[in-house]
Amino acid sequence: MVFSFFRGGDTAMDEVEDRIHQMLVDGRTVYDTAMEAVFGGGKSKKTKAAVKGADNEINVAQRDVRRSLLVHASVAPATDVAQILSYMSVIKDVERIGDYSKNLYDLARYGVNFETAEDRDELAKYRDRVGQLISDAAATFRARDTPGAEALVAKAGGFLDDYDRHVKAAYRSEDSPDVAVSRALYYRFLKRITAHVMNFLTALTLPLDKLDYYDEPNLDS
C-alpha cells in the first residue's frame, strides 16, 4: 500500500473515471444476465448468484468512488470541484442501472419467459436497444466524447415515448394479467434504465446545475 505512493501512471481522477467506466460495464453484465433469464434462461441459483454478484460489485464500486472523490476534494480542494460534484451525483444513476436490471431478473423469478411469447421480436428489439445504449454510454464516457454523449442522449430520448406507448398498451390490453403486467413492468424498467443512462451522460454534456435535466432546453446555449 505504501508503495502505491511511488507508483506513477494515471492521475487520481483518471482512476475514478476508470472505476465509473467499470461500473457501467458491470451494469451491462447484470443487464445481460437478467435478460438471458427473462428470455428463456429462467431462474437458477447460478444466474441469481451472477446477478447479485455483479450488482454487488457495482455497489462496492459506488462507495469506493465516493470515498476517492472525498479524498480528492481533501487533497486538492481547489481543483475539479465541478467534476467531483458531478460524479458524486451521476454514479447514483450507474448504480440504478444495476438495480433495475435486478428488477428485470425478478420477472424471470416470477415465471416470465419472453422467448416463446408472440411479441418476442418486439421485446427483444428493446432488449438489444437498451443493452447497446449502456455499452455506448460506457464507450462514450471512456473516450471523453462530449459530442458523442450529446448524440446518445438525443437518441435515447427518442426511445422514451416508445416505452410509454407500450406501457399504455399493456394497461389497455385484454390479455391475461400475467402477460399485461409483465409487459408493463418490462417496458417500465427499460424506460428507467434508459433515463438513468441519459442522466449519467449529462455529466459529459451539461453544466453542473443542469445535471439530470436533459429534457429541458439549455437556455444558456
Partner: peptide, 24 residues
Amino acid sequence: LVADRIERTMNAALAKSGLTGMAV
C-alpha cells in the same frame, strides 16, 4: 507534484491503521 500519489496512498490507507498508517 505529488497530489495524485498522496490521493492513492490516502485511499489505500483509509481502512488501515498501525504502522502502515504511520508510514503513510
